[in-house]
Write a protein that binds this DNA or RNA. Structure first.
Lengths: 339, 339
DNA sequence: TTGAAAGCGTTACCAA
DNA sequence: TTGGTAACGCTTTCAA
C-alpha cells in the first residue's frame, strides 16, 4: 500500500563484508569483541550501504527498547519545556530515545497514554503528574519498569521521584516576603489549577501565614475564562485581591507568567512596585530575569530534573537494580526588584 | 540481567479466549472482521489479562511503526513548544506516537539524531530546521518517508513544508510601523542567531526599509554572552541602537522575549513607549497579551503548524500518495499598546 | 469467519 | 574470534 521502502538489512551488510549477521551485530554493539580487521571491513560495508539498524527488531530480540517514555501535561507556557530538553539531551548521549505524550492535565488521557507508551516496551517512564487513575497506577506497578515522577516529591511515589517541594518553596517565598517586612500578603492562583502543584504552593503559602500568625488568608482563585492566558489570571487576580483587601502589601503569584499580569495591572493602577506592593513569582523563567521584569521569584531546577530523571532510568535499566529513590533538587529564592 | 519482566503476549490472550493469535490481532486492528461473539470473548480476555500489544513486534511485522519523529532545536524559551503540543495531540488521536529529539540548533547533532530516529523506521519525520548537512539530506531523501519541514517555507523543501514566511512577516511588521508614522526603525537580533529564521526576519525588515526608502539600516546584532537570556539581548540591543542612532523612533525585535528586554530597558531610560519609541515583537507569546506587556507583535500559528504537519504525515503514510505540498499558514500583525 | 505457516530484522545462546 | 540456530511477538498471505 504505502511506503514499501526497501531498507538495507544486517544480512545485506554481512554479505557485503563477507561475515555472518551476528558479526555485524557485534561490530555495532560490542565492537571490542571483533577483530579490528574484520571490524573495519564491516564498518566499511555499513557505510557503503548506508545501513541503519532497525531498532524495533533489536528491541524485540534483546528485550530492551532503548526508549524512555515521558508523559507531560503540556509544553507550551508550562514549566516542563526545559525538563524535556534535559531529558532528551541526557538520553541522546546514552543512545536512548524519548517518546513524548501529552496528557493535557487529565488523568484519563494520562492513563490512555501510559497504555500507548507501554506498547513500546519502554525502558523507563517519566511522569509530570503525580495524580494518576487507579488503572494507571496498576498498569505502572505491574509493568515493572522504572517510573520517575517529577516536579514534586510525593509521599508514596510509584517508584522514584525527582523534584523539589512545591509546598516548601512557596512557604519559603512567603516567609521571605514576611522577613522583608510585608504583613498583608496575598496569593494568586488559577481557580482551575492544572495539576496538584498549584495546590501545594497555596498550602505552603497558607502554612507560612499560620506560622507567622499573619492573619487571614488572602487567597484569590482567579476565575479563568476560556482562552485566558496566565497574565490575565494575574491581572484579574490582583484586581480581586485589592478589591477585597485594599491594604494588601505583597502578592505572591503561582507562576512568573501570572506575576507578569499582576505587575502590569499594578502599574496600570498607578501602584509603585515594590513600595506600594511587592510582587513575587514562581519559576524563574527568562522573562523574570534582571534585564526583563527583574521579578523576585523562586528558581526551580527544571533542566536538572530532566537530566536526573534520565540518569535514574538509565542506571536502573542497567545492571544495578538500585533501590527506588526520592531526589530533592531543591529551589532558590531569587531576590530582584519587585519584592 | 535487568528488567526481565514477563509481558502477556497475544498467544496468552488467544489461549485464554480459545482462539488463534491472528484472531486476537484482528480484534485489535480490524474488529469488523471478527464475529461479535468471538470479538467480545477476546476483548474480555485482553482485559482480564491486562494485555498490552507489543508495538515493536507489530511494526516489525507490518512495516509501519505508527511513530513520527520530530527534530526540534530546543523547547525551552523557543517557538516550538506549542508546535510540539499540536503534533502530539494530533498524533495521539490517530494512535500514533511522537519520538522527540533535540538538535540544539546544530546541523551535526541533527544529522546524528536523524539517523537515530530512522532506526525506529518512523512513518514520518518533522524537522524544525531547514538547514541540514548534506549527509542528513541524503539520508532523508533515500529513506523515502514523508518529511515535513516546519516554521518556514523553504524554496526547495526535501518533501513537504508547513509554516509561514518569516521574511514576509517581518516585512509586514516593518511596514506596519512605517504606516503608523515611524520613519527611523531599528531591528534587534541576536548576533549568533540560532537557525535561519532570524536571518529571514532581518531580511524582511531590510526589504521593507528599502521599499519605503527609509534610509540606512539600523540593524543591531546584539552580542550574546554565555548564559544571556533573550531579554538581555533586547535590553543591550536597545542600548546599542540608541547609542548609534539616538533618533530611532521604533524597534522591531526578533522575538517577544527580546522585545520584553527592550521594553524594560526603554522604561529604565525614561522613554515613553510608544510615544518616544515604538516597540514590536515577534511570536505573540502569552507574555505579549493585552493583560501582560500589551506588546504589538506578529502572531504565528505555532500550534496549527504542529497539527497540520501531523495531518500531512498521516495522510501520506496512508493509502493516498498525495503530492508534496508547501502549506502557508500565514501570520497576523497584532496591534496592541507598544506600537 | 477463522486459522496455519512464514516471515519481519535483530540478538541470545551455545558451539566451533 | 566467529557462526548456526532459535527465538522475540506480531502481521501478512494464503487456505479452509
Amino acid at each position: 500500500m504505502q511506503n514499501k521502502h526497501k531498507w538495507v538489512t544486517m544480512i545485506d551488510v554481512a554479505e557485503a563484508a563477507d561475515v555472518s549477521a551476528i558479526t555485524v551485530s557485534r561490530v555495532l554493539r560490542q565492537p571490542e569483541k571483533v577483530r579490528p580487521e574484520t571490524r573495519e571491513r564491516v564498518r566499511a560495508a555499513i557505510h557503503a550501504l548506508g545501513y541503519v539498524p532497525d531498532e524495533a527488531a533489536g528491541a524485540l530480540s534483546s528485550r530492551r527498547s532503548r526508549i524512555v517514555g515521558a508523559l507531560i501535561s503540556t509544553l507550551a507556557s508550562s514549566f516542563f519545556a526545559s525538563t524535556v530538553d534535559g531529558l532528551s539531551n541526557e538520553l541522546r548521549a546514552a543512545g536512548y530515545q524519548l517518546l513524548l505524550a501529552n496528557t493535557d492535565y487529565t488523568p484519563e488521557i494520562e492513563a490512555e497514554s501510559i497504555q500507548a507508551l507501554l506498547g513500546r516496551r519502554p525502558d523507563g517512564l517519566v511522569l509530570s503528574s503525580t495524580a494518576h487513575t487507579e488503572a494507571a497506577e496498576r498498569l505502572l506497578r505491574t509493568s515493572g519498569i522504572p517510573v520517575v515522577e517529577i516536579w514534586e516529591l510525593p509521599e508514596a511515589p510509584i517508584d522514584c521521584a525527582v523534584g523539589f517541594s512545591n509546598h516548601a518553596a512557596a512557604r519559603a517565598m512567603t516567609e521571605f516576603l514576611a522577613d522583608s517586612g510585608r504583613r498583608r500578603i496575598g496569593f494568586v492562583v488559577n481557580n482551575r489549577p492544572r495539576g496538584t502543584r498549584a495546590r501545594a504552593r497555596a498550602e505552603g503559602y497558607a502554612e507560612a501565614l499560620a506560622a507567622r500568625a499573619m492573619g487571614p488568608l488572602r487567597l484569590v482563585e482567579a476565575v479563568a475564562m476560556a482562552g485566558d492566558t496566565d497574565p490575565e489570571i494575574g491581572a484579574r487576580g490582583l484586581g480581586e485581591l485589592l478589591d477585597r483587601w485594599p491594604d494588601t502589601d505583597a502578592v505572591f503569584c503561582v507562576s512568573d507568567q501570572v506575576a507578569l499580569g499582576a505587575l502590569c495591572e499594578a502599574r496600570r493602577r498607578g501602584l509603585d512596585v515594590p513600595n506600594d506592593i511587592a510582587i513575587a513569582g514562581f519559576g524563574d523563567f527568562e522573562i523574570a530575569s534582571e534585564a526583563g521584569l527583574a521579578l523576585t521569584t523562586v528558581r526551580v531546577p527544571g533542566f536538572a530534573i530532566g537530566k536526573q530523571a534520565a540518569r535514574l532510568i538509565l542506571a536502573r535499566s542497567g545492571s544495578s537494580p538500585s533501590h527506588p529513590a526520592i531526589i530533592d533538587l531543591g529551589f532558590e529564592i531569587v531576590r530582584r526588584a519587585t519584592a
